[in-house]
């Protein structure tokens, strides 16, 4: 059963929904009863992030002196708990000598950005716009 927008906003669950959607890709859609969409996001986005790590992509640091690096760091963070797990386990150092380094960065950054889009979609669903 899908939770309506009114139920979500009345219960004050919207913030929690967005947090869950950020932390676990697809969790927002699963919460709202969109199981197939949620499962696809739950598998595809962490897999994309893992491939990025496996091909020597880098998790960028929050370096405000270099705006592009800082933006890439925010994009990396968008994937949620996979980012926190990878960072805490020491993955994502990146190997600039690897042929696949730039591809790895693209996978890591875009996985985070896509999860942000998924969060916005979950918000729209919760508000009854979709």
């Amino acid at each position: 059963m899908r939770a309506s927008a009114a139920e979500q906003t009345q219960s004050g669950g919207l913030v929690l929904l967005m947090l869950a959607s950020w932390a676990v890709p697809g969790a927002g859609h699963l919460w709202l009863g969109r199981r197939s969409k949620g499962l696809i996001f739950l598998i595809a986005l962490p897999l994309m992030f893992a491939i990025g790590l496996a091909i020597h992509g880098r998790l960028f640091p929050f370096d405000v002196s270099d705006p592009l690096v800082c933006l890439a760091a925010f994009a990396n963070l968008g994937i949620g708990s996979p980012y926190l797990a990878a960072a805490s386990l020491g993955y994502g150092a990146g190997d600039v000598r690897a042929v696949t380094y730039e591809y790895g960065n693209a996978f890591l950054i875009v996985a985070g950005l896509l999860n942000m889009l998924v969060m916005i979609d979950a918000y729209d669903v919760a508000m009854g716009r979709k």
């Binding site: 197939s36 969409k37 696809i40 996001f41 595809a44 986005l45 897999l47 994309m48 491939i51 496996a54 091909i55 042929v99 696949t100 591809y103 693209a106 996978f107 875009v110 996985a111 896509l114 889009l117 998924v118 979609d121 979709k130």
Partner: peptide
């Protein structure tokens, strides 16, 4: 996995998959 074509195809697949699932509701 070092083939640029394979990695590009894989990247395009994931991006297309997520956009398609966000944009459309019907599986077809």
């Amino acid at each position: 996995m070092r083939s640029h074509l394979v990695l590009m195809t894989l990247f395009a697949f994931f991006v297309s998959l997520v956009f398609a699932v966000i944009a459309k509701d019907d599986i077809r």
